[in-house]
Lab assay of single mutants.
Amino acid sequence: MIINNLKLIREKKKISQSELAALLEVSRQTINGIEKNKYNASLQLALKIAYYLNTPLEDIFQWQ
Rank of each mutant, 00 (worst) to 15 (best):
R28M: 13
S27V: 04
K13G: 05
L53Q: 00
L24V: 15
A21E: 02
K12W: 07
Q44E: 15
Q64E: 14
I3S: 10
W63I: 08
L45G: 00
E58H: 13
E58K: 13
I15C: 06
W63R: 06
E19C: 07
Q44V: 10
E19P: 01
L6T: 02
I31G: 00
N40E: 12
Y51S: 08
L24S: 04
Y39L: 15
G33E: 14
L57Y: 07
S42Q: 05
I3H: 08
L6C: 08
A50M: 04
T55G: 03
I2L: 12
R10S: 03
L23P: 00
Q29C: 12
R10I: 05
N37Y: 07
N37H: 09
D59F: 09
T55H: 06
E19S: 11
W63Q: 06
W63S: 06
S27R: 09
N32H: 11
Q64L: 06
I3A: 10
R10M: 07
E35R: 02
P56M: 05
Q29F: 07
G33Q: 15
Y39E: 10
L43R: 11
Q64A: 14
K13I: 08
L24A: 10
K7Q: 13
N54K: 11
E35N: 01
V26T: 06
L8Q: 15
K36Q: 15
I2A: 08
I2K: 08
Q44C: 13
K14S: 11
F61Q: 01
E19L: 07
T55Y: 05
R10K: 01
Q17F: 03
N5I: 08
A22C: 12
K14Y: 06
I3W: 07
E58N: 12
N4W: 04
K13V: 08
L8C: 15
Q44N: 12
F61V: 02
N4L: 07
I49P: 00
K48G: 06
K38S: 10
I49N: 00
S18P: 06
R28H: 11
I31K: 01
K7I: 06
I34G: 00
L8K: 15
L8D: 14
K36V: 09
D59C: 11
S16L: 05
Q64F: 07
L24Q: 00
Q44P: 11
N40P: 15
A41T: 12
D59Q: 13
I2D: 04
Q17M: 09
E19T: 11
M1W: 08
Q29M: 09
S27N: 09
A21F: 02
A46V: 06
L53P: 01
Y52D: 00
I15W: 05
L8I: 14
L53F: 07
L53H: 02
N32G: 08
N37L: 07
D59H: 11
L6D: 03
N54E: 15
Y51L: 10
K13P: 01
V26W: 03
L6I: 07
A41M: 14
T55L: 05
Q62C: 10
M1S: 09
E35Q: 02
V26S: 02
I60S: 01
L23N: 08
A22H: 12
A21T: 02
L47W: 07
I49D: 00
K13M: 14
A50W: 03
K7W: 04
Q44G: 13
N5E: 03
Y39F: 14
I34E: 01
K14M: 12
Y39P: 03
E58I: 09
K48N: 07
N54S: 11
